[in-house]
Amino acid sequence: MKKGIMNNTRPLICKIVDKWEECDDTFGFVLELPIKIQKAKPGQFIMLWIPGVDEYPVGIAGIKNGFIEIGVAKMGVGTSAMIDKQKGDFVGIRGFFGKPFKPPKNVNHLLIGGGFGMTPLKLLTSSLINFEEMQRVHIFEGARSKNKLMYLEWLENLENQEEIFFHVSTDDGSYGYKGFPTVDLEKFLQNNKTPSVIYAAGPERMMKVIFDLGKKYSNVIDMQMSLADRYIRCGFGLCAGCVVDPTGWRICTDGPIFNTEQLEQITDFGNFRRTETGAKEKI
């Protein structure tokens, strides 16, 4: 294996070196990579292998000096098995897969998400902070209630820095604005006319709402969205189980991040996905 590069090959076995409860039913993990890998780009994902149980895609929340941070939200057997793991246990990863977010220079960066969608947005935030031509970064996070908000403390601490703004909302009003994060986003777009790019990651139905909203504002020059509501099998574009119609693009290699121009062409966006069998179902 070449130094510094993660090859697409069998799962690379990593040791869990840190684990914490991020919020309700969601845990953060740091994995120690057996080789020194330089970096992953925000928006890319890995296939996480819980030996003997399951393998599934998870986003990358952070990467530094041979350590990778992920966040796992409890869904079913596979994610529960990861949450049951402890420091010192081993899991496998394959990756890094997918096309990343591509932030342009000299714009407002508007990040909006919820649930495990916050993991790629965390890495994107970290990288925007180091981005030379960084303009303002606005992060809109939404969740059902306060105990479902990921990275709350981290984001609130960031807000003390200049040019970073954190807008938080909950459906039940237990923290921040009461309502959907899209309400805050729309208010922002109404009052702010500088060129902006929206980056979204979360449930696809929510992203469709954001997409339709963004199209109404001419200062939104691009929208980049992570389509993660799809079953992923191989992760590197071979099986095409995650394909979207009618373009034939694969979420795992042509995505998961798609821009406005691409999203316009994907009629499945916000409407349909394929299940494990390959049958289409309504999202």
């Binding site: 090959t9 069998r10 394959r94 099998r233 099986c239 494990e276």
Partner: peptide, 16 residues
């Protein structure tokens, strides 16, 4: 009939 197939991992590369 529809089939869900095998549990993951189902496909991986051996780069070498």
């Amino acid at each position: 009939n529809p089939r869900s197939g095998s549990p993951n991992p189902t496909i991986f590369a051996l780069v070498e």
